[in-house]
Amino acid sequence: MSEDRSTLARTLAILELFDETRLEWTPEQMIETLGYSRPTLYRYLKTLREAGLLTSLPGAGFTLGPKVVEMDFLLRKSDPITLGAQPHLDHLAETYPCTALLTRWYGGRILCVASECRTTSASSYPRGRPMPLARGAISRAIMAWLPRRQALPLIEANMSDLTEIGLGTTREDIQKSLREIRRSGVAVARGEVTRGVVGIAAPIFDSAQAPIAVICATTPSELLNDTAEAALCDDIRDAATRITSALQDRRAGTDAAPSSAETAETH
């Protein structure tokens, strides 16, 4: 079993190579980066290519394959967070001159998974593009609600960015700023990711009350007066609360549902 896990991890490491800075890899580049032997690498590549996760053309390197697109389609159809957030994204985009976004927090990354926009104010980080970890309202809506043992390493790893945006010059100062954000229930950032754009964000929680996603609206600062900003903050907080409640209700319903074996025993 341990060997199977090791093989899986080494295979997945090949997929992790692909990012915005390098979209195509040759086997030689993979060998140099990962340190795999040629026979081992080609065995993994064969598996990934047959699964449709990678593809290649004669004389070219490997790129991500069509299975990724198929899985993305299935994700959009099945993810309860995305499905639950969509009506709220629609409402925000229709009510305010903004881009409404749903982002997911996973493996130390923040990723936009859905967005709606009814104006020309498009986000600099469209669906699928990882976002900055220590800048903007979305990152703070994660960091402010993380348990201390998870937040401290992030603070220490991103001290320079957090200091530059004005959260504080020491770890204690930054923790205090994050606590204030937590008390307000919403994070607001001005021009930190895109100049002249205000971001307002609130976290969505799992059943253990850990932040797993964020709903956010970004809008040009000149289109947002104090009254509109207060209303938008209220709507963002309300949307996050409603999505969280729906997820918890769904989980409670799943836990309460009898298993097929239990159902069979009662008949």
Rank of each mutant, 00 (worst) to 15 (best):
M1V: 07
M1T: 03
E3G: 00
D4I: 06
D4N: 04
S6A: 13
A13I: 01
E16I: 00
E16A: 12
L17Q: 10
D19V: 05
E20C: 09
R22C: 01
L23K: 15
E32W: 07
L34E: 08
L34G: 06
S37E: 06
Y44E: 01
L45C: 12
T47K: 06
L48A: 04
E50R: 15
G52W: 08
L53S: 03
T55F: 14
L57H: 13
G65C: 08
P66H: 12
K67S: 04
D72V: 05
T82F: 11
G84E: 05
H91Y: 13
T95A: 12
Y106S: 11
G107C: 04
R109C: 01
V113N: 03
V113H: 10
E116Y: 06
T119Q: 13
S121C: 07
S124G: 07
P130C: 06
L133H: 02
A134N: 05
G136V: 02
G136C: 13
W145Q: 03
P153C: 07
I155P: 00
E156R: 15
A157M: 11
S160Y: 09
S160D: 13
S160M: 10
T163K: 10
Q175M: 11
S177F: 05
S177R: 06
E180L: 12
R182H: 08
G185T: 00
V186H: 03
A189G: 04
G191T: 05
V193Q: 13
V193G: 03
V193T: 01
I200G: 03
I204P: 03
F205I: 01
F205W: 14
S207N: 11
A208T: 00
A208N: 07
T219G: 05
T219V: 12
S221V: 10
L223Y: 11
L224G: 02
E229K: 15
A230H: 11
A239M: 06
A240T: 02
R242Y: 07
I243M: 04
T244Q: 06
T244K: 06
A246Q: 12
Q248N: 15
A252S: 10
A257M: 08
A261E: 14
